[in-house]
Design a protein around this nucleic acid. Structure first.
Lengths: 139, 139
DNA sequence: TTTGTTAGTTAGTGTCAACTAACAAATAAT
DNA sequence: ATTATTTGTTAGTTGACACTAACTAACAAA
C-alpha cells in the first residue's frame, strides 16, 4: 500500500497524541483530527494492513518502525514549514494550518532547501532543543 | 461550483497557452497538461457551466473575467513560489513542479508574506519586467 | 468516394478520502 | 440489573478527479 497524504496525517496525529499520553486510541484521533469515527476506523484498518501501526486487544495503537518513520518525517516537515512561515510573518494559526497541507506535497529536495535556509537565517539558537514549539496545533 | 485545484490548473493552462497563440482549443490543453482528451472535455464543460470560460462555435476558448481572475491569481502564485524555491537553492525543474502543487493549497496570507519576503530579499531588480521567467514549465 | 485522421463528446469505470446510518460491544450510571 | 453512553465496526454513499472505450463530426487524402 502506498503511503498517501491522509495516512501521513493519521500517523502524525498518532505520534503527537502519543507525546501527551501513553495510550493512544481511535477516539483520541477522532478528537484530535475532527474526522468521523468511521473514517478513522477505516483509516486505522488500512494502516494496520500496511504495517504502519499495531493495535492490541485494548485497542491501544502503537506505531511500528515503518509508521514512526513516516510520522516523524511528516511531523518534522510540519514544524519546519510552520516555523518558516512564522518567520516570514505569517500568524501562528495560519502558518500551521498551511503547514498541514504543504507538508504532504513539497518534495524532499525543496524541503531540505527550506530547512537549510531556515537554519541559517531564522533558527533561534535554542530551537533545536524545543522542536515541539507550536506543534500542538492542527496536526 | 466551488473552484477546486484542478479547475485552477486548467484555467491557468488556458491563460498560459493564450500568451503564445491567440486561439486556445481543447487539444492545446490536452497537449499542455498531458491529460486525456475526455478529461479535458469534461473539465471544460464544468468550467463553462461555472462561468469561467466561454467556448464559441469554432471551439475557441476564452476566459471570462471570473476565469481570468482565478487563472491570473494561480499563475502569479506559480511564478512566485517557483522563484522563491529557486532562490532557496532548489533546481528549476523541481521548484516549478512543487510550485504547481503548492500554489493550490497555500493561504492568501501566507502567500502574501512569501511575496513580501521575496521582493525584499531575493527579487532581482529587473524581474518585475520579466514575470514569465520559468513560467512555461509544467503548468 | 471511400478511407483515415483529428477534435470533441458521452458513457461507464476506478481510486481516494471523506461522510452518515446502523449495529455491536464495552463501560459507566442509575 | 437495567439503562445510557462511549467506542469501534460495517455497509453504503458522495464528491473530486482521473481514466478507457466508443461514438460523432469535420476535414484531408488516396
Amino acid at each position: 500500500m502506498k503511503i498517501r497524504a491522509s495516512a501521513e496525517d493519521y500517523l502524525e496525529a498518532i505520534l503527537v497524541i502519543g507525546k501527551g499520553k501513553n495510550n493512544v486510541r481511535a477516539v483520541d484521533i477522532v478528537k484530535h483530527t475532527g474526522y468521523a469515527r468511521a473514517s478513522i476506523s477505516i483509516a486505522l484498518k488500512q494502516l494496520k494492513e500496511s504495517g504502519c501501526i499495531e493495535v492490541d486487544n485494548n485497542h491501544s495503537i502503537t506505531l511500528t518502525d515503518k509508521g514512526a518513520q513516516v510520522a516523524k518525517r511528516t511531523y518534522r516537515r510540519h514544524l519546519l514549514i510552520g516555523n518558516f512561515l512564522i518567520a516570514l510573518g505569517v500568524d501562528e494559526k495560519t502558518a500551521f494550518a498551511d503547514a498541514c497541507k504543504l507538508e504532504h506535497v513539497i518534495s524532499e529536495s525543496s524541503f531540505e532547501c527550506l530547512n537549510s535556509y531556515y537554519q541559517q537565517n531564522f533558527a533561534p539558537a535554542n530551537e533545536k532543543n524545543h522542536p515541539q514549539a507550536g506543534g500542538g496545533i492542527n496536526l
